[in-house]
Simulated scan of single mutants.
Amino acid sequence: MTLIGIEEHFLTAEIRDAWKAIGLDAVDPSVAFHSGPIEGRLLDLAEDRLALMDETGLDVQVLSLTTPALHDLGPESVDMARRANDALAAAIARHPTRFQALATLPVAMPEEAALELERCVKTLGFKGAMLCGRVGARNLDHPTLSPIFQSAEALGAPVFLHPRAPDMAVRAAYYSGFKPEVDAAFATYGLGWHYDAGIQFLRLVLAGTFDRMPNLQVILGHWGELVLFYAERLAAMDRVSGLAHPIATYLRRNLYVTASGMFLPHYLERAAAVVGTDRLLFSTDFPYQYRPGGDARRFLENCGLAEPAKAGFAHGNWRRLTGESTA
């Protein structure tokens, strides 16, 4: 059974150096995580990556720029995004059966980002885009960012909402007071990343984004970034939200969720109960959650889904979402 991982990350030396040039490593703790062996795996788009894919049992990686992407860069990010996307397209051309891609966008320049998404989908054959939370002080529901989502809906291209570190004031208020390395972990992969990504999705819902763009499809990693586990509490906002539908409708109509290497069957069961088995996607969160020994394939085989739903989880749901043949 073909196994496609849809949250599998990369990095370019140019973007790494751009982060350092603006001092992002001093204010975003996640930048420091992209070092050592992790950095080597992020930069590699060739044989070593393919060997690790084979070892864990993954047939295809859908490549996306790691957090915090280009969200803190200005006009210079327009050409930088084009170069990153062209590099991905070249990697896909070398290994067309092993790699796909989500577009890297110059999100600080929304009109240009919308055009780059169109180029990536129509010309380069990319499957969608990845966004990493806030853009400066703007949350993703800010009206100035709507051209990106309008372009995605028009193209039928899903948008993956990836975590990024919370704002410094939030980190100081909620995630500080311990050793520096504990503060950084608590604010990022321990919890902060996941609250931040889930909140960005909920802000899109509450802002009426999916009423205005009913065909827009969004993906959350890590089994829904905590959102699905509070679906009942979120439903209590229906009486005040002023939305066209109950919040549960947007969870089942506009949201896909993926594993991100969290291979826990009871999380899968919860996600399936909320969004449906036809909205489950597979991913390993390479290279952060990489574990050798056929780990990905073993989770698929023992995930507890019936065969048709298992095939959907492995590859069919992604192919249907992105307009590929599921034959």
Results as ranks from 00 to 15, higher is better:
L280Y: 00
Q289T: 10
S283R: 01
Q217L: 10
D167G: 13
L131T: 07
D211N: 13
F186M: 15
P308E: 13
L216T: 01
A207V: 06
V121H: 00
P163T: 04
A103C: 09
L305E: 02
E116I: 01
Q289G: 06
L220H: 10
A154C: 08
L73P: 01
H194W: 07
T97M: 08
D141H: 10
A13V: 12
A165I: 02
Y195V: 15
A108C: 11
T66I: 12
C132D: 09
V240E: 14
E47F: 05
A272I: 10
L220Y: 11
A185K: 14
H95Q: 13
L268R: 02
E153R: 05
H95V: 06
R212Y: 05
M262R: 12
D17G: 02
D72S: 15
R253Y: 09
D295R: 15
L124Q: 03
R297A: 05
E39M: 10
G221E: 00
L206K: 05
R239T: 14
G312R: 05
R41W: 14
S77T: 08
A231L: 09
H162K: 09
Q217A: 08
V27N: 05
E307C: 09
D72Q: 14
T144N: 14
D54W: 00
V60Q: 00
E153C: 05
P308C: 13
L204R: 04
K179Q: 15
A51P: 01
V257K: 00
V275T: 05
L117Y: 09
D285A: 07
F229L: 09
A169S: 15
V78I: 15
H9M: 00
A259W: 06
E111A: 11
E76V: 10
A311P: 03
F299C: 04
A327I: 13
F263C: 07
A108H: 08
L11D: 00
T258M: 12
G5D: 02
A235H: 10
A154H: 09
N254W: 05
R233H: 11
A197W: 04
V274S: 03
L216G: 01
G221A: 04
R319L: 15
R320L: 14
A236F: 15
A172H: 14
R98E: 05
L281A: 06
S176I: 06
A26E: 12
S151N: 01
I247L: 05
G242T: 05
L243V: 03
H194T: 06
K310W: 15
V27C: 07
R291N: 11
P96Q: 10
L161P: 06
A90Q: 08
E225Y: 03
L268D: 02
D48W: 02
P143E: 11
S325L: 13
G224T: 11
G125M: 07
L50Y: 03
E301P: 03
W318D: 00
M237E: 10
D59H: 01
K179L: 15
E225H: 01
P96A: 08
P214Y: 09
A244N: 14
K179I: 11
R16A: 13
A113M: 00
G125I: 08
G293H: 10
A93F: 10
L234D: 02
M1S: 12
L191R: 12
T97C: 09
Y189D: 14
A273D: 14
M213N: 14
N254G: 08
P180K: 05
F286T: 02
G208M: 03
G323C: 07
T97F: 06
V218T: 14
V218M: 11
G57T: 00
A185L: 15
